[in-house]
Amino acid sequence: MNNVEINHSGTIRMPIRSTDQVLHKAAWLYYTHGMRQDEVAKHLDISRASVATYLRRARETGIVNIATSTQLFADDVLARQLEDAAGLKAVWIVPEDRHALDPTAEMPVVAAAVFLELIGKDDRIGVAWGRTVYHIADVMPFADLQGVTVVQLCGNLGAPYSYRPDQCTTEIARRLNAQGINFYAPLVLSSERLAQELRQEPVIQEQLATIPHCTLALYSVGGIEADSHLVKCGALTAEELRVLGEAGAAGVIAGQVIDRDGQLMDCAHNRRCISADLDSIRSIPKRMMVVQEDEKLEPLVAAIKGGFASHLIVTASMARRLLERLGSATVAAKTE
């Protein structure tokens, strides 16, 4: 089987565009996986004629050369390998070797650009909360996307807390000139009984029922460290979160604690939460997860296992660590 060679000039490149990514993926599937053009077309949901055009353009522009010994753009190949290993629809890598550029500052810019490319006409978009989502909203370009609706995936937090769900939802809707729908309920109630009763309120039921109709979700995955968002906002104490960690907790999705397999933890905190049902979130076709903190490997692994990501944006170092972890897990599973 022929390999794929991608010229490497050593110059700093802008984040890969949507068309460039499809071109690269078509070449990856055709040459590296040995798929036929009709199989590539089916995998990428494009026409066979488009596949032939992409492959021709890749060769003509010098991006792809058929050769017996090859070298690919490391970040692009890493993205394709991670897609294969994690079963993701698309991965974007933010390189960390860009001289003076700071990947943590660049991550929200890349994520905002990708997010805009994923939005379709009349889409309904679910948005969670946290520092990463807030920073994406803060750098998002203004666009005129009337007909698009942005909805909050979980209840709200107290006013003093930064990166609140309503702030993220409202700002993204403002940047897109879209309709914004906030969740008029707290994220965490003081008792399980009160949370159960509030979920039965018609307005809350109506909001929760619309989540499966979203076509795109934007969020990150939270950690369970002592200074996590759930602790900072007062939803849990550091000790309570430590105990949950010992019981198998690994991360946080839309305010809810998940275990190492990405499943909802059976705990008092989750029963007191007003948030989208995790199965409803999983049913959203495009689930865009953005992770930039190095310490979030374990939460990210859990989120991927739980099916919470179809599109992923990470740093190159996180991508390599994640690929190594997923590869090790696959080997372990085969030897059991």
Rank of each mutant, 00 (worst) to 15 (best):
E5P: 02
I12V: 15
I12T: 13
M14T: 04
P15E: 02
Q21G: 02
W28H: 14
K42T: 15
L44Y: 09
R48V: 15
V51Q: 11
A52F: 03
A52K: 07
T53F: 12
T53K: 15
Y54I: 03
R57A: 12
A58Y: 04
A58N: 09
G62D: 06
V64G: 00
T70C: 09
D75S: 14
D75R: 11
A79F: 04
R80Q: 15
D84Y: 10
A86Y: 04
V94F: 14
R98M: 15
D102H: 13
D102M: 10
A105C: 09
V109Y: 07
V109D: 03
A111T: 04
A111N: 06
A112S: 09
A113F: 00
L118H: 05
I119W: 07
K121D: 12
I125Y: 12
I125S: 13
T132S: 12
V133R: 10
D138V: 10
P141Q: 06
D144L: 14
Q146V: 10
T149Q: 13
V150A: 06
V151D: 00
C154S: 10
G155K: 02
N156F: 04
P160G: 01
P165K: 05
T169E: 03
T169G: 06
T170Y: 07
I172W: 00
A173W: 03
L176I: 10
L187R: 02
L187I: 01
L189G: 02
L189S: 07
L194C: 08
L198K: 08
L198C: 11
Q200D: 07
I204M: 05
E206Q: 13
T210H: 05
C214V: 05
V221W: 08
G222H: 07
G222N: 04
G223S: 08
G223A: 06
I224Q: 06
S228N: 06
C233V: 14
L236N: 01
T237K: 07
E240L: 01
L241F: 05
G245I: 02
G245H: 02
E246A: 07
A247R: 10
A247E: 04
G248T: 05
A254Y: 03
Q256E: 01
Q256P: 00
V257P: 06
D261M: 15
L264D: 01
M265H: 02
C267R: 05
A268P: 00
C273M: 07
I274C: 14
I284K: 03
D294V: 14
G307Q: 04
A309E: 02
A319F: 04
R320D: 07
L322K: 12
E324N: 08
S328E: 11
S328F: 03
A332S: 15
A332R: 14
A332C: 11
A333D: 12
E336C: 13
